[in-house]
Design a protein around this nucleic acid. Sequence first.
DNA 1: AATAAATTGTAGCCATGGCTACATCTTTTA
DNA 2: TAAAAGATGTAGCCATGGCTACAATTTATT
Lengths: 229, 229
Amino acid sequence: MDKYYPTIEESFLFNEIDKKSIDHLLKCLGAELKNYDKDEYLFLTGDKINNIGIVVEGIVEIIKESLAGDRHIIAFLEASDMFAEGIVSTINKISPVTARVQANSKVLWIPYDKIIRACGNVCDFHLILIQNMITILGEKNVILNKKIELLTLKGMRAKIAKHLLNESYDKGKQTFQIVLNRLELADYLNVSRTSMCRELSRMKEDGVIDYYGKSFKILKEEELIKCLD
Amino acid sequence: MDKYYPTIEESFLFNEIDKKSIDHLLKCLGAELKNYDKDEYLFLTGDKINNIGIVVEGIVEIIKESLAGDRHIIAFLEASDMFAEGIVSTINKISPVTARVQANSKVLWIPYDKIIRACGNVCDFHLILIQNMITILGEKNVILNKKIELLTLKGMRAKIAKHLLNESYDKGKQTFQIVLNRLELADYLNVSRTSMCRELSRMKEDGVIDYYGKSFKILKEEELIKCLD
DNA sequence: AATAAATTGTAGCCATGGCTACATCTTTTA
DNA sequence: TAAAAGATGTAGCCATGGCTACAATTTATT
């Protein structure tokens, strides 16, 4: 298991925790490393979940089944990504999603109980762990709120403007590269790709932004801000 | 301060905590009760927040200022409602909103540090408190995710269908009362009231639902579910 | 009970944006 | 290096849903 420590340490859950102590801590937590074969399920929609998972090797897919029956992948998780933390921290702990490995994978499972209940010999790390857990949930809240803000905006231009401003603020520059391609971006903004492309063209024509591929430049910030009304 | 205990106890933060211990606990936490006059500000957008607030008396408004400069009230909080818990649990603790009292009010402030750091004489309550804190954040995540699911649906009928199904499942009945009026509902679904009313009429005409005022009845659940594609 | 105010429902008009189809350009694979 | 697959941009068509205006109904106020 030791060979995976570098991966495990990267998770924010172990932020500020002395790397030398992780071995001790994982034992204290009763963490378990499990192997999964391609396409094996980790848990299904409706299952009661009691562990937090950290991907140690391979790929984990998070799948949302709609009431209407169709399946939609909402996340691809890679090594050191955490999952299920949002589920175990609710009252009933019932998963609204299904998790499956896409390739042969290894997952580290940590019992939620052990994380939030300080162990008998209250190690200092435990309290840091709990604080990290809360911070992770807090930050997730921020991300969800940002997404809601975006989705709530009326009009194509407003959505594009808001997103580009967000990116620009995050990077601290007027010129920046985006990560998503056009289709993914349209998906994120919940609009059709073609209509989004059309509006991007218009915005370039109007001289408020410029772009080539994934490189964007904000030309008239004030104009973009005006779009948000 | 004792006279406000019944209100304070109602907060989920003190769930499962012996009421007799609350007095001791609040002292251990260094909780402070403060008075505010009508229209006084509790904190402004951009302020760094270090305390969780619980409304003890009066009304607190949470206000969102858009980049474009207009103000929008996103919540009215009443006695025993908690606020700022989502802010203090992030990394930088900067508030994205402004809080103001709408009438003469009393607010109980609890230092976040004290909540998540067990005190020297580790009282048992402290751990419960921390677990409650995590549960609160987890549940908030669930609510935000539900809202995103709704906003992401394409088409008026899908949004209405999803919301009515949610309400029906929550209440466990096909017939139920909604809380919001038409304007508030339209706002929640992020559509115009008139278009929503039009679609509600059509749905009634099609015989998939029936309603009168705030009373709704789901007539053909399978049909509603089909709308979600 | 009478009036005012607020809430809800309906209709017509038209802008926004989704969809199909295709062209252009880029990247991957053989 | 050619061919295939994928990503991006553009255009035309038309359905969805936003908006204004007003009617009908319910609730609040005097």
